[in-house]
Amino acid sequence: MTERHDPDVLFKALADPSRRKLLDLLHAHDGRTLNDLCEHLDMTRQGVTQHLDLLEAANLVATVRRGREKLHFLNPVPLQEIYERWIAKFEKPRLKALGDLKRRLEKTNV
């Protein structure tokens, strides 16, 4: 379970075009079965399973059993954490700059 907290696992999982394609497919339509996903990739069923296992280990994909089917969902929570780590840091000065601009322009209007 420690690997789920390791950012290396997350970035390795993202560093492959087939795995990104799988995430794109789930982003377009969530809750897909393995059969459904295999139809969109030129790869063996075993290959797709291995990619999905890596995505699940990185917590980018969550699975739910519904009857005999296993459904795959895109889990955006680790991506949100990346966003917060870097992007959110740059948001504050930008918002402050906009706020300052608004205040200055509104002052000159008076």
């Binding site: 969530d30 917590n59 969902f73 889990n75 955006p76």
Partner: peptide
């Protein structure tokens, strides 16, 4: 329509 979101928290 469904989503499943998962996070692991040290607690």
């Amino acid at each position: 329509s469904t989503f499943v979101y998962v996070t692991y928290i040290h607690t």
